[in-house]
Computed example of a mutant assay.
Amino acid sequence: MTVPGETPQPHTAAGPGPAPSPGPGGITVGVATAQEWQQITSWANHEGWDIGHHDFAVFHATDPGGFFVGRLDGRPVAALSVVNYSDDYAFMGNYLVDPAHRGKGYGLATWEVAIGHAGSRVIGLDGMPVQEANYKKFGFVSQYRTIRYAGPLTGRPAATAPPGTELLTPHHLDAVAAYDRTYFPTPRRAFLERWLTAPGHTAHVRFQGGRLTGYGVIRPSPGGHRIGPLYADTPRDAEALFDALTAPLAPGAPLCLDAPEPQQAAASLAASRGLAHQFHTVRMYRGPAPAAGPERAFALTELAMG
């Protein structure tokens, strides 16, 4: 998710890595260390984004050079991630500025370096509505809204995995990676292998007639648990996977997911399990919108990193 603390202005993007010269107020921009990004994650969670405990580690392995900070006197004051998934596709998020340093141009300086990391790739983002017009100045085009549903888990059947669902095992990985490609804009098998098996992450698959009809992942977060992704052929498949993923949770456990608004069945499923519309972002792309259908998902993987 992009969470601007500054309004970006049109520019000619610099390349990746440290800025060739100090920016406004002496800021320098470079690739973040893991320790620095822990601070960025704490900023994001303070804003209410509820980042999963191991999200950064998985995405960082996908593109270690895609996480940028603007430093003032050696201390991070701004951030932006631009994760390159392939030669054709990148996803932007985590656009944050320390509240004590907003309005000084530090976010813009970080933006100008970080966006160059994507090169000529199509870039996706989920931006806050207040910044939608500003992103359009950079060639980003709005596609649909993404809704955060959150709340205490209610309305489930008995806490057992529904028939047709099963825990994901390594022998499912090839099938899941192929299925994932019908929803995500580019192949990401290596990412999935890490995401599906990260500490605390639990994944379920669903088969009907010997054919994979969906999969989903649940993971711990500061606010409770998050589901994502949840990809399924039908609302019935999605409901079965949702109930399998949440079966171990206690009634009333806090839960959230992010669903594209065009997938109207996701709203019904969320409401039936006690989750309410919390806020929304706007999915935008710079470059041609991908042919794959993320708007069909019942839950996206992660707002800030795709």
Rank of each mutant, 00 (worst) to 15 (best):
L96D: 04
L72T: 08
R226T: 12
G139T: 06
R226C: 11
W111D: 06
G214D: 06
G26D: 12
R102Y: 09
H60L: 14
G52V: 08
H101N: 12
A19M: 12
A159Y: 00
L212V: 04
L96G: 04
E132D: 01
V130F: 14
G155P: 00
A175M: 02
V82G: 04
R75H: 12
F56T: 11
P294F: 01
Y285M: 11
S81G: 10
P288M: 13
A292F: 10
P24W: 03
A32M: 07
P254I: 05
P251R: 11
V58W: 03
L257D: 07
H280L: 11
F138H: 15
H117R: 10
Y285K: 00
H204T: 00
S120N: 15
A267F: 05
F184V: 01
A270P: 03
G274Y: 02
H171P: 00
R71P: 10
R156V: 02
G66P: 04
A114R: 01
E193M: 09
A203V: 09
Y135N: 05
A232L: 07
R236G: 15
A304C: 09
G26E: 13
G48L: 05
L300N: 04
E112I: 11
Q278K: 15
H171D: 15
P76G: 08
E302F: 12
G15D: 13
G15P: 07
P248A: 09
K136E: 11
T186G: 01
P76V: 00
Q143W: 14
Y135L: 06
A159E: 01
W195S: 01
R71E: 11
R71F: 09
F91S: 05
G5L: 08
A14G: 14
G139V: 01
P8Y: 03
A177N: 03
T281V: 11
P20G: 14
T213E: 03
P220Q: 00
L303P: 02
A100K: 14
F298D: 04
A133L: 13
P157M: 03
R206S: 07
E6G: 12
G164S: 02
E132R: 12
F59N: 09
R219V: 01
G287H: 10
V77D: 05
L249F: 12
A240D: 10
A109I: 06
G105A: 01
Y144A: 00
L245C: 07
T154R: 14
S272Y: 06
W49E: 05
P170G: 03
S221C: 13
V31R: 12
Q263N: 15
F138D: 01
Q264N: 10
L96F: 14
P290L: 06
E295V: 08
V69T: 14
A118G: 02
H46V: 11
G116M: 08
A190K: 11
T182H: 14
G23I: 06
Y149L: 03
G216C: 05
Y231R: 04
E47H: 13
P229I: 08
A289R: 13
L192R: 07
V130N: 12
E36R: 08
F242I: 00
S120G: 13
Y106L: 09
P163K: 09
A270N: 03
G151S: 01
L257W: 11
G127E: 05
A291G: 06
I147E: 11
G107P: 00
A297P: 06
P170H: 09
H101Q: 12
A299V: 10
V122F: 04
R236S: 15
A19D: 15
N84L: 09
A240F: 04
R188F: 08
F67E: 01
